[in-house]
């Protein structure tokens, strides 16, 4: 009973803050509502006994990624939202399309089936702790996808470095003296 109330609360807040994130005129407020959303996502993970994921959700998404978003927003200094042209010009057609999409989403709900029970029921996870269970699985069963994901991230990091290097070389050509002094 308590779990259901908690789930309902988290779900309602997630949807509410998701809408607010889109609706707010001020981008800083949008980011903050996404922050609240992430916290409630972590709440959902906790309800699923996935405490490690919950903590990582907050540390990585709230603590690092969203802060970077804030950084970008601050640096371009958007106090108010830019007005962008409507994606669909006609208001009536837009309403129709979004309602249609909503109906489609609701229509697929009945086809949702619970997956087969794996080898990690709640009791086993409680005994092993979620962190260890996930570690075992990641480094044994799913080692290949894990390494592939790591490789992709590494490529992204190298790509970022290459892009940043290129820019700084352009700056170097115009102002070599400044760099010399700095060194």
């Amino acid at each position: 009973m308590f779990n259901q109330i908690l789930f309902l609360y988290c779900a309602v807040v997630i949807i509410g803050t998701g809408l607010l994130a889109v609706r707010f005129k001020n981008p800083v407020y949008s980011v903050l509502s996404v922050l609240v959303l992430f916290f409630h996502m972590a709440g959902l993970y906790l309800l699923l006994n996935a405490e490690f994921l919950a903590a990582i959700q907050i540390i990585v998404y709230a603590g690092a990624i969203l802060v970077l978003y804030l950084f970008v927003i601050f640096l371009v200094n958007l106090r108010q939202e830019l007005t962008i042209e409507r994606f669909i010009a006609s208001r009536r057609f837009g309403t129709f399309a979004s309602i249609g999409l909503g109906v489609c989403l609701l229509a697929v709900i009945p086809s949702f089936k619970l997956g087969a029970k794996g080898e990690y029921p709640v009791e086993r996870i409680e005994q092993l702790t979620h962190t260890k269970a996930m570690g075992f699985e990641l480094y044994s069963t799913y080692i290949l996808p894990f390494e592939v994901a790591g490789l992709i991230l590494l490529i992204a990091v190298i790509g970022g470095l290459v892009l940043a290097r290129k820019n700084s070389e352009d700056v170097d050509n115009s102002g070599t003296d400044a760099c010399e002094v700095k060194k």
Binding site: A55, I58, I59, A62, G63, V67
Partner: peptide
């Protein structure tokens, strides 16, 4: 079980207070 991670999570939340 995740005491150490919880503290990291909270300290990253506290930085929001400073930024804001």
């Amino acid at each position: 079980n995740i005491g150490l991670l919880f503290i990291f999570a909270m300290s990253s939340l506290a930085s929001y207070g400073i930024i804001l």
